[in-house]
Deep mutational scan, measured.
Amino acid sequence: NQASVVANQLIPINTALALVMMRSEVVTPVGIPAEDIPRLVSMQVNRAVPLGTTLMPDMVKGYA
């Protein structure tokens, strides 16, 4: 199964993503693939992302 990017902490709106904020986990539904974690670093989220939430492409500015 494909691992997705999951929030490792609460990520406030407009926060630039850092490695420590993300982990990979096999979840349903599938979100952003875990292999894209390096690409996500320094991109901003466009909403608050609670701990344990799967990151979806529409949550990250400039990802989709």
Rank of each mutant, 00 (worst) to 15 (best):
S24P: 15
L19E: 05
I13T: 12
M56V: 06
D36N: 12
L10G: 09
A48R: 13
T53R: 14
G52D: 09
A7F: 03
L19G: 05
V45C: 05
G31D: 01
V26L: 11
Q44R: 14
S42K: 12
M21S: 04
D58T: 09
V27D: 02
M22E: 00
Y63G: 03
I37D: 01
L40Y: 01
Y63D: 03
E25D: 12
P33L: 09
V30Y: 15
V5A: 09
A3M: 15
V6S: 00
L10V: 11
A34V: 08
Y63M: 05
K61H: 13
P38F: 13
G52M: 05
A64D: 08
P50N: 09
V45N: 01
M21I: 03
V41N: 04
G52K: 04
E25K: 11
P38K: 14
A64F: 07
M21G: 03
T15E: 07
L40A: 00
L17R: 00
A16T: 11
D58C: 14
L17W: 03
I13R: 15
L51Y: 14
R47F: 06
P57A: 13
V30Q: 10
M22R: 00
V30N: 15
E35V: 10
V26H: 10
N8Y: 04
V20M: 15
D36F: 10
M59A: 07
L10K: 10
L10Y: 14
R47G: 04
G52T: 02
M22N: 00
R39I: 08
T54Y: 02
M59G: 03
V5I: 09
L10Q: 12
T53L: 15
P57V: 07
A34N: 05
P29Y: 03
D36H: 12
Q44D: 04
K61F: 11
D58P: 07
P29W: 03
L17A: 00
L10I: 09
P33R: 08
V27N: 03
N46A: 11
M43K: 06
V41Y: 05
V41E: 05
V49W: 03
L55A: 02
L51F: 15
R47V: 10
A48H: 13
V30D: 11
A64K: 12
E35Q: 13
V20F: 15
V26E: 15
P29L: 04
T15W: 06
L51S: 14
A48E: 10
R23F: 04
M43E: 04
N8E: 09
Q44F: 14
V30H: 12
P38M: 10
N8M: 10
V27C: 05
P12W: 04
I37S: 04
M59S: 06
L55F: 09
G62S: 11
T28M: 09
A16C: 15
L40T: 02
N1F: 15
M56S: 06
Q9T: 14
M56Y: 07
I32K: 01
P33S: 12
P12N: 07
L51M: 15
M59Q: 04
T54K: 04
I11G: 00
V5S: 02
G62Q: 08
M43V: 04
G52Q: 03
G31M: 03
G31E: 00
S24D: 09
V41G: 02
L55G: 01
L17E: 00
Q9I: 13
L10H: 15
P57E: 07
N14E: 08
A7Q: 01
P12A: 10
P57G: 07
P12C: 06
I32R: 00
N8V: 08
R23D: 04
L55R: 00
L19W: 12
R47H: 08
E35K: 08
N8C: 05
G62C: 15
K61G: 08
L19S: 10
Q44N: 11
P29G: 03
N46T: 14
P57K: 10
K61A: 11
L19T: 09
L17K: 00
L55M: 10
M59R: 02
P33C: 06
L19I: 10
D36C: 09
M56A: 07
T15K: 05
V6P: 01
Q44G: 04
G52N: 12
T53G: 08
L19Y: 13
V45I: 06
T15D: 03
R47S: 07
S4N: 01
Q9H: 08
M21D: 04
T28S: 14
S42H: 13
I13W: 13
T28Q: 10
T54A: 06
V5M: 02
V26Q: 10
L17M: 06
L17P: 01
Y63V: 04
I11Q: 01
A34Y: 12
P33A: 11
G31N: 01
G52R: 05
A48S: 14
E25P: 02
P50L: 11
L51N: 10
A64H: 12
P38Q: 12
A34C: 07
N1H: 11
V41L: 15
M22H: 00
N46E: 07
L19A: 10
R39T: 11
P38R: 08
V49S: 02
Y63H: 04
D36E: 15
A7M: 05
M22W: 02
T28Y: 14
T15S: 07
V41A: 05
V5P: 01
Q9W: 11
T15M: 09
N14W: 15
V5H: 02
T54V: 13
Q9C: 06
G62Y: 15
V41P: 00
A16W: 14
L55N: 02
E25Y: 07
M22L: 13
N46V: 11
P12G: 08
I32F: 02
I13L: 08
N8D: 14
G62F: 09
S42Y: 14
A3K: 10
I37H: 01
S24T: 12
N14P: 00
P12E: 11
V60W: 02
V41I: 08
N46W: 08
I32D: 00
N8A: 14
E25I: 06
S4I: 02
E35C: 09
A16G: 07
L17F: 02
G31R: 02
V45E: 01
V60G: 00
V49C: 06
S42T: 13
L51K: 09
M21A: 04
L55H: 01
M56F: 09
G62M: 10
I11D: 00
V6D: 00
T54M: 03
A48L: 12
L40H: 01
T15G: 05
G52E: 04
Q9N: 07
T15P: 01
N1I: 14
R47T: 10
R23M: 05
V20Y: 14
V49N: 02
I13V: 13
M56Q: 11
P29N: 04
G62T: 08
Y63I: 04
V20E: 10
N8S: 13
T28H: 10
Q9L: 12
V49A: 04
R39P: 01
V26D: 14
I11R: 01
A16K: 09
T28W: 06
V49R: 03
L17G: 01
P29R: 04
L51G: 11
A64G: 09
V26Y: 13
T28R: 04
I37G: 05
E35S: 12
A34Q: 05
Q2A: 13
A64L: 13
L51E: 15
Q2P: 15
A48D: 11
V26S: 10
I37A: 08
R47Q: 10
P38G: 13
V20D: 07
E35F: 11
K61I: 14
E35W: 09
A34I: 07
K61Y: 11
K61E: 09
Q44H: 12
L10T: 09
L55T: 01
V60N: 00
A16P: 11
Q9D: 08
A3D: 07
T15C: 05
L51V: 15
G52P: 01
Q44A: 13
L10C: 15
V6F: 02
S24E: 12
M22C: 03
K61M: 12
A18G: 12
Q44W: 13
A64W: 06
R39S: 09
A3F: 10
D58W: 15
N1S: 15
E35T: 10
M22T: 01
N46M: 13
P50V: 09
I13Q: 13
V27T: 12
M56D: 04
T53C: 08
N8H: 07
L55S: 02
S42C: 09
I37F: 03
R39V: 10
N14T: 04
A34D: 07
V49D: 03
Q44E: 10
M59L: 05
N14M: 10
T53S: 14
S24L: 07
A48Q: 14
G52F: 04
T15R: 06
A64N: 12
V27I: 06
P12L: 09
N1Q: 15
G31S: 01
T28E: 15
L17H: 00
T15V: 07
E35H: 10
A18Y: 05
R23L: 04
A3S: 09
D58E: 13
Y63A: 03
M56T: 14
R47Y: 12
I11T: 02
Q2G: 15
V45Q: 00
N14Q: 11
S24K: 10
M43D: 01
V30L: 15
A18E: 09
M56P: 01
D36G: 05
T53Y: 14
N14K: 06
R23S: 06
T28N: 11
